[in-house]
Design a binder for these strands. Structure first.
Lengths: 335, 335
DNA sequence: TTGAAAGCGCTAACAT
DNA sequence: ATGTTAGCGCTTTCAA
């Protein structure tokens, strides 16, 4: 391998043009395979690129190009600690990589103000699109998104109005379906165990749908345990122990997600409580481990990867739309 | 919803200058708080920015600025399906967000050729740094990274030579420590259960260290089960069932990671096998759920977030270095 | 099919 | 303290 380039000085398109003995615009045409050029010019440019190890500068390319928008998409997610969001990114990147469009990510930690700051920061890179999570944003975020001149896609949640395009499922409907399942199975003394609803709006919507469906059946939540901090198996385990200590007569628990439910299951195993005989457990998300449990977890599978993929597909669409990808209730064996 | 902006025409710094009645460079100075300007100029610019809803164009800013490198970092990870990598990103973004530097990500799916293509694509955005995973890359990737004129940080693995800076831990040492733990606990008929080692080099290094330490104790692996596809609890469960069917006399199993081990634990629960009495289980990663299990999983906790944070910290460092963050063996109750 | 030249929106001298 | 100006590395008319 040759020695390093003098660091400040990377190979430019001008260098390639000189090396290939053609004009800059010809190099540009060859590189983007746009416009017409001779076979000979094509070959000489290809050679020069290889010889020089040229890597195009997309900063300059995007600035000069049409619309001055970059082949990048900005993505703001609330967290990386919950599998849901990496899954979303997974769907996104799998679809975007094919087009050579990378994601620029920002993590808001469920803070609307941070979300707004991140949206502004990402928009400053002039991405082709801005992807947000959920439908609840600061007014400032909405204003930025509208003024940004980019396609905006809000992912995951369809319960409400979007800025532009929305891809997801109805969290209220998930909650309602979960409640109806528990009711149909004969459970009557049902509790909710979740993490902080102020930070996770969508969990709040599920709970609202859940309670609504309970009410339709003439039932009400017997108890509710809200743990501080993020959801986790440890939190679910401690939460279920606390819940059962206070309300020994419960016969079913609806968890804010599968991680919490797994912790609940562990609590039952540790305490020797029969599931679902003594207590039924119902989760949310349909994560991998749910199906591998000795008793498959009763839960709802959400189309996380699909949401990411569809969001990517929407970037090229013309008109805004709302896409509800639905969900699947997995009966499992714990409720 | 109001109508969209005429898409082509976003507010520019020149617009702000006109609106504020000052020169462009003054606006630039105010915005970057660099150089000197009067209180009055500062105020007028701030007003104009707010009134116009100006969002700076960093494409242009980076192109014009020193070194022409963008306040972005490029990150190539092999997967988003394994918690390890989102955790890495989590550490990274938590440190970089403070500086307003977003990550541009690429997911290689454990394919070195894709990694190379992604490295080139990310480098074309002229990031301030390129972060790679592991130490094994195509020669082309290494050449790109060296010629890119950027700081390169390789994360996670310290077993080998890096391009520039390396932050991680020794996978061989993890494997060796795990084996010594099992041997010390009196297990003798030990098997390995993992996923495809050709795609996960680091799991291979752990296994090598594990076998080496076994050999030092005069022992050898009794069996080995390699599942195709990614690691998952379902794969771990099926794998342990297969392993025990073929080798009923095993007394301990070393899993390629905690997800696999969780599946193994589920297999034991389902089959009514005492853990660790009948069979001991040992994992890797120290994920959240490990500590919440009825019997805490015996595993090794890896400093994933810390690796991300330290990698971020290295970006401003002058000289290359290798940072070994170590790991922690968690005795747990399953081995 | 090709090259020359005018920007894209910004930063960084250099004047003033 | 502030304005003027020359680029940064590309793309894209426009002529040739």
């Amino acid at each position: 391998m040759d020695e390093f380039q003098p660091p400040g000085r990377l190979v430019t398109l001008t260098d390639v043009a000189r090396e290939a003995g053609v004009g800059e615009s010809t190099v540009s045409r060859v590189l983007r395979n746009h416009g017409s050029y001779s076979k000979r010019a094509g070959a000489r440019v290809a050679e020069a690129v290889a010889r020089l190890g040229y890597v195009p500068n997309r900063l300059a390319g995007s600035l000069a190009g049409q619309g001055a928008s970059a082949r990048l998409v900005g993505v703001v997610i609330p967290s990386l600690a919950n599998v849901v969001f990496p899954d979303l990114l997974r769907g996104l990147t799998s679809a975007l990589d094919a087009e050579g469009i990378p994601c620029v990510i920002g993590v808001s930690e469920y803070d609307p103000d941070r979300e707004e700051a991140l949206a502004a920061a990402l928009l400053s890179w002039r991405p082709a699109a801005l992807l947000l999570t959920g439908l609840e944003h600061n007014p400032g975020t909405v204003a930025l998104a509208r003024a940004g001149g980019v396609r905006v896609v809000e992912m995951i949640d369809t319960d409400g109005d979007g800025i532009d395009t929305v891809v997801g499922f109805s969290n209220r409907a998930v909650g309602a379906a979960s409640a109806r399942h528990l009711v149909a199975r004969g459970y009557r003394r049902i509790a909710y165990l979740g993490h902080d609803l102020r930070i996770d709006v969508r969990a709040g919507k599920r709970l609202a749908g859940f309670e609504e469906a309970l009410a339709e059946a003439g039932l009400a939540l017997q108890a509710q345990e809200i743990r501080s901090g993020p959801s986790s198996p440890a939190s679910g385990r401690a939460g279920l122990e606390a819940l059962l200590a206070r309300h020994p007569d419960l016969d079913a628990v609806y968890f804010s997600n599968d991680d919490m439910a797994l912790g609940g299951y562990f609590a039952c195993l540790a305490a020797g409580l029969a599931v679902p005989g003594r207590i039924a457990l119902f989760g949310f998300n349909g994560l991998d481990f749910a199906a591998a449990m000795p008793q498959p977890l009763s839960t709802v599978r959400t189309p996380r990867l699909e949401i990411g993929r569809r969001a990517a597909a929407c970037l090229t669409d013309q008109s805004p739309k709302k896409i509800d990808l639905g969900f699947e209730l997995i009966e499992g064996a714990t409720a």
